[in-house]
Simulated assay, not measured.
Amino acid sequence: MNTHITVIGGGLAGLTAAIAAAETGVPVKLFEAHQTLGGRGRATPPPHVAHEGAHVFYADGPHYTWLKKRGFVAGLGWPGPTDAAKVGFRIDGRIRRLPSVGMLRAQSRKWLQAPVDVDFHTWATERWGELAATQVANAISVVTYDADTGRLSAAFVWDLFQRALGITVPGVRWVRGGWQQVVDRMIARADELGVVVETGARVDTLPTGGPVIVATELDSARRLLGDESLRGTGGFAALLDIGVRKDRRDRFVVFDLDEAGFSECYTAQDDTIAPAGESLFQLQMPVRDGESRDSAHQRLELFADAVLPDWRSRTTFQRTATAKNRTGALDLPGTTWRDRPAVDRGDGVYLAGDMVAAPGMRGEISINSALAAAASAVTDARRASGARTAVPDGEASGR
């Protein structure tokens, strides 16, 4: 072919788009501004392998089907029965084994259909009371990274809550080695397919001569395309990674119903990401409107005091960070994923990433939008070359 597809951005969305397009036989060039590929899927080097945020997959959507078919999520890890039983809920400053009665009632109402045009707090308060509405919203902040999840669309929050904390067993999957393992496999597949990759190559001008998939953060895409409409709503959270010497008092997972924090032990299902005899935890705390990052980190450390007894005296590794607009799109009342920036920007330009018009949550949006972008870009490239059109496997609707 005399036409190739250009992918700008080498994170999860960019790698997905490049692989999906290259699998059809269309030449692909990928440009990444950083020296390494992977975007937010990258992790710290061993012995403590820590990610920028929660690194789990949900096996209930087309994104996972696509990943699994290619072996990208092979080698799953599972918490043992002892660890799996150590789930807790922070209520009124104490760690309890069960959530509140109000939250249990909400969990049992899977059949309810929440409205798009009403905020979740208002809708849930009418059914279970204000306290339960706040606790449910705080519980699902693990997904949104938002200190006021109740302000979001009721339909959006309710879907997330039922997927992650509903009465149906959630389809959570942990890949041993974390997302870095998945990214490494995707990089190897792209290389196998002949994708031409240039790292340390920042693109400031939109390339010509073929379809282009812009798989960057939305801010970068807005600047590159000169399109001020490319904006979205995202979360903002303080993060704390802690490696500690093991203690039987440590819990596997804790949902903070008081302040929307969250804690998870990733070595419970993957002992390769920390030295023997140690546990690696990631904790998060959404930053409140107008709150300083220092204040959010102070609240996060107080949360750590509650879930990891004597953690300071046991610490072998520690890393702090903040994550702003890095958790996928959040839908405000009156909007759905279809109202986000469209994948198809016209004139052979396509958008992929976690804040564009594709279904799913977090990184699922990146994968699903990338598959939709790749399918359209392949059609354009083959049409320009007069070749037969082939659709990338696993195309998701995001147009």
Rank of each mutant, 00 (worst) to 15 (best):
G277T: 05
T16P: 00
P81A: 01
A139F: 00
T389M: 09
V183M: 05
G61W: 11
T316N: 07
V287P: 10
H34V: 00
D256W: 00
F89W: 10
P341A: 01
M103L: 10
D60I: 04
R42D: 07
A21N: 06
T134I: 00
A132H: 01
L300E: 06
D270N: 02
V197A: 08
Y266I: 09
S385F: 09
L193A: 05
V391W: 12
Q318H: 10
S108K: 10
I95V: 13
I187C: 10
Y266D: 05
L76D: 13
R185M: 08
R189T: 12
A43S: 06
R176D: 04
G75E: 13
D119W: 11
G11T: 06
I95K: 07
G77H: 13
L280F: 01
S295H: 15
T315L: 01
L300W: 03
D83R: 02
V197L: 09
A54L: 13
C265N: 13
A17S: 06
A124N: 00
G166F: 03
N2C: 03
G363I: 13
A329L: 05
V56Q: 13
M285W: 12
A106H: 04
S263F: 07
A374C: 09
K324R: 14
G398H: 10
A54C: 13
L239T: 14
E301H: 09
R105Y: 06
A357I: 07
R312T: 11
V28I: 05
L218V: 02
R127K: 14
G25C: 00
L330N: 01
P392Y: 08
A352H: 05
R105G: 08
A329V: 08
G39H: 12
W66S: 05
V196H: 13
V142M: 15
L308V: 11
F120Y: 03
T208Y: 15
T233K: 02
R90I: 09
V7H: 11
V244R: 03
V183G: 04
P79R: 05
A139P: 01
P81C: 02
G394K: 12
